[in-house]
Design a protein around this nucleic acid. Sequence first.
DNA 1: TCTGGGGTCCTAGGACCC
DNA 2: TCTGGGGTCCTAGGACCC
Length: 406
Amino acid sequence: MPDRWIAHLDLDAFYASVELLRYPELRGRPVVVGGRRIHEPVVQSDGSRTFSVLRSYVGRGVATTATYEARALGVHSAMGLMKAAALAPDAVLLPADFEEYRKYSRLFKAAVAEIAPQIEDRGIDEIYIDLTDVAEAREVTEDDPYAGVRALAERIKARVYLATGLSCSMGITPNKLLSKIGSELDKPNGLTVLTHADIPSLIWPLPAKRINGIGPKASARLEALCIRTIGELAAASPHLLREQFGANYGVWLHDAAHGRDARPVVTFSEPKSISRETTFERDLHARDDRATLGGIFTRLCEQLAADLDRKGYLAKTIGVKLRYDDFRIVTRELTLEAHTSDARIIRQAAGRCLKKAMLERRLRLLGVRAGGLCRADALPASPADPSERDQLPLPIFETSPESTSL
DNA sequence: TCTGGGGTCCTAGGACCC
DNA sequence: TCTGGGGTCCTAGGACCC
C-alpha cells in the first residue's frame, strides 16, 4: 500500500459537455466551443433550434473545447477556428459561456468535497484530491489490494454525475504527477489506479511531453537528444540532463521520469496577479487608431479595477502586455507607492508602462495586469484623495485632440 | 484567414542596503 | 585604494498550464 493516495480528476470535454446538457439534440454530433459571441443558437417558431456551423465562421477565435466526435476529425483545443473549419466544416460552433461553466465547476467541486474534502483547485475543470485519510481508500479484498480506493473513486464519479450530469476521468496514484498522467490513460469516463510498480509498463512507453511540465520547447530539446519517451528520459544520464537543462529543471526531469513527486495537495492559495487582456478584431496602430485603442485601454483598466474590488484585493504593481502583429510579446510594469484598486490610478500607471514600450508596430493584443496583491481587508483603509487623483497627468492613448503623446 | 484569455513559476541582471 | 559578500526588491522575458 503506497504512503499516499492522490487522485487527479478532470471533467471530460468540459465546456462542450455543459453545452450538450443545454442542447441534448447535439449529442453525437461534432461540436466545438469557442470564438466570439456572434453565433448564438436561434430558436425557430416550432421551438427547434438552429446552430451555426464552423464553415461559416470568420475571425480570430480559437477552439476552447471540442467534443470527442469533433476531436476524431482532428479538432483540438487552442486550434484556430479557421483551421478547425477546414477539418470539420459541418461541426456545430457554440460561443463560450463562462458563467455557466463556473456554475458547473462549483457544483462538481462541492460534490467531491462531500466525500473527500482535501481538494486542490487546478482550474475550472480539474482538481487533485488527497484520499490518504479517507478510510475507505485503505480497504482491501482478498484478490484486490486497491478495491477500497477503486470503490471510493467510483463513488466520487457517481456523485459528480448526480450533481452535474457530467462524466469525469480519474487517475489515482501515490502522487500528483502520476495521477495527472493516469487520468488521461482512460478517457472519457475512465478510472486508472496505479502505483510505482506499474511505472515501467504503463508510464515509460508514453511520450515525454505527457509529463505535466514538459511543454513543446522542452519536448523538442529532448527529441534533439533522441529522448522521446518517459522511459528514455528515465534512462538518460542525470549529468547530461543537468548540463542541458540546468540544475533545477535537469534534476526535476530525472525525478519526474521515475515517477517521484513529493508535492502536497494544496487546499488554499492566495492569487498572485489578476489581469485582463483582449485581442483585437484587426491589428491596431497607436497613431492611426488612437481613439479606438484609448477606449479599449481604459475599459481594460476599469474591468481590472472592478475585478480587484469584487475579489477584495489591492495591487502594488501595474503592468501592460502588448502583442505586436508579428506575435512578439512585450511586458512593462511598475511598482506603485501604495496599493490600489482605483481605476484611474491603474489607468495612469498603465499609461506610464505603455510609454516605455515600442509603439511603431501594429498591435494585435493589449492587456493590463495587477500584481503584488494583498487583501483589501488586510490593509488599513487609506481613502484616496480625489483632488490628487484629478490632477493625474493626461495619459497615453487619451482621445483628446491636443494630445501629442504619440 | 493561422494562433484566446487567465494564470503560475523560474531566471537573470541591476539597484540598493548592510 | 581595493575589495567582499549576502539579501531583497524591481523589472523583463519565457516556459508552461488550463
